[in-house]
Design a protein around this nucleic acid. Sequence first.
DNA 1: TTGAAAGCGCTAACAG
DNA 2: CTGTTAGCGCTTTCAA
Lengths: 373, 373
Amino acid sequence: MGTKSAADRPDGDRVATPAVRRGRPTLREVAAAAGVDVSTASRLLRGQDMPYRAETRQRVLDAAEKLGYRPNQQARALRLQRQQAIGLLVPDLDNFGFTQILRGVQEVAAEQEYTLMLVEAGAGAGEGGGISYERLGLEGRVDGILVAFASMDDPHVQEWAERERLPMVLVQRGTPSYPASVVMDEQRNVAVMVQHLVELGHRRIGHVSGPLRTDTGLRRQEGFAAAMREHGLTVRPEWIADGGFHWTGGQAAAREILDVPAADRPTALVVANLISALGTLSAVHELGLTVPGDLSVIAIDEHIVAAHTNPPLTTVQTPQRELGRRAAQMLLNSLSGEKPSRVMITDPPPSLVVRASTAPPPPPPDPPPQLPE
Amino acid sequence: MGTKSAADRPDGDRVATPAVRRGRPTLREVAAAAGVDVSTASRLLRGQDMPYRAETRQRVLDAAEKLGYRPNQQARALRLQRQQAIGLLVPDLDNFGFTQILRGVQEVAAEQEYTLMLVEAGAGAGEGGGISYERLGLEGRVDGILVAFASMDDPHVQEWAERERLPMVLVQRGTPSYPASVVMDEQRNVAVMVQHLVELGHRRIGHVSGPLRTDTGLRRQEGFAAAMREHGLTVRPEWIADGGFHWTGGQAAAREILDVPAADRPTALVVANLISALGTLSAVHELGLTVPGDLSVIAIDEHIVAAHTNPPLTTVQTPQRELGRRAAQMLLNSLSGEKPSRVMITDPPPSLVVRASTAPPPPPPDPPPQLPE
DNA sequence: TTGAAAGCGCTAACAG
DNA sequence: CTGTTAGCGCTTTCAA
């Protein structure tokens, strides 16, 4: 390496780690092997500019190939002030709703040659607990983050992102105080479900909702009320309960709604997500009711699991993947200076996956000849 | 919350900041604000050494606090030649088996202040397809990787890791050619299942296996054979089929095994993982059989979903989390130069979660008074 | 007890 | 067409 004699540099040979071979070949080594300057090698290897002598180009390319050169992302990031990476924060990977969002995000990130860091941020903290975002270690590692916390109303994320100066796009959560978000048309999602039930003949419809403090939960519930009104049906408060987007919550909510005399029960339940629908089914069975004989159940979120519950659940498939795509695009665009906005996905419209959990309502238990209301 | 106006700076003493605010405060700025050299600030903020003048310490700490200083990971990584981050590659986040492994890995990473990069590597590629590991962009971003590809027998990973000089630990996959891996005691997992069935009175037991080209699949199948032998039962080849660790595979395998005259059917099926057990249940219902009336079914992998299938599945809970922990530990240790090894987790022993899918076998269809074999 | 200086590996003006 | 130079933000000898 050095052209100087080792003798006149008493400190010279204890510079780096005692490792004989370095981890990976550096650009400097490639350049040396090709007999050019690092700057030339850098430009050329990155495909920049046009004019190189054919021979130079060949020599550099050969040397890089031969040494198996791969640019050091860190050095590049430091120099460019850009990580070429984004983060995706999800609360819970057990929640079936997230995998499709993830796929969408992944696609876009890959297309734009960004690395995606997926972080399950809710894991340790449980539902209500505060998360230490600092602990995630995302700080200097990503250029921006996507936060898919529909089920978590956490003001800290926003503070954190601001403090770290991290561009952030909220997914499934249109907090009015934040300008960058992508959500679905929940009204429509729910309308599809209500419509299906009405077509089957149901008029007594209840709702196992999401938490009302979350944007998604709230909008689904509003959508429920709106759809009911549209069909001239009454929304009965005692037929609505918060299932918390969670298994136990769904169970508790269903118990609350259904553990009443048969005459006071709804004939169908619209459930705000798949995992809480599992809980709902539990409660239904506990109470000795049959689905869809006594009660129809329909839920948001399509997943293979829905085909295997008892009975198989009718679901609504929503544009989750598109949601992920758009969110990622927005984040990436905002990194290039574009102003982010609030977007509502409508394009792949929600579609019904009809299975065995929905059917016409049972005949009314009492024989009142006309209006049950 | 409080919308932060640009103007409000409650504290009177303001640091002379450059005209344009940089992305984040640098160490240099902190040092300047405190009136010390960067090297001093660096040492002090990292809690290095002991001897600082109390006043110096205070000034630096205050400045850092006030500016909201956070060290730049990239610069540090470049200097230290260490990312303080590890990657976890999983094939498929829809597979329930991985979340617990993830939790374990997360715990250890957090304990040691490592950032975890979770990458769903199989997503785009499908089961058999080759993955472009280079595309993951993990290259210079992590110090090592955990590969949880039980269901994928891919020689490329190894090459890739070697080429990138990335220390790698295999999780759930004890490839004999690779020295660093953590697996479970699959023999024991399966033995628990067989034992349960035998105790219920079953003697005609089949197996929906994992792919035999995967280590896990193979070991589960060997375990099955061993357990059967131990109980003096015969392993019937026609009662074994590969469910591919996938939904459709599970379905096909079960069809193959069960679509025969009743007298030739097993009375119980040991299924190699939960997702393929869902497929198995599908096939069983298709064929008009009842569980557990005609057939008992038991699967590996405990998950809340198992409580909601039709009927609820008896499962074996395995030490997945511990697996993740040990794997992460091994990787981290190997980063500090320790030789990795092949480890088999035995500690939290597998435990049975008994649900409705297992029961005593039906009475034999024919009336042969003695041995059915 | 603290400061000066030398880079980690890379890119980007600006000169030749 | 290619080389020189000057750092990105941080850590770490070595000196003072």
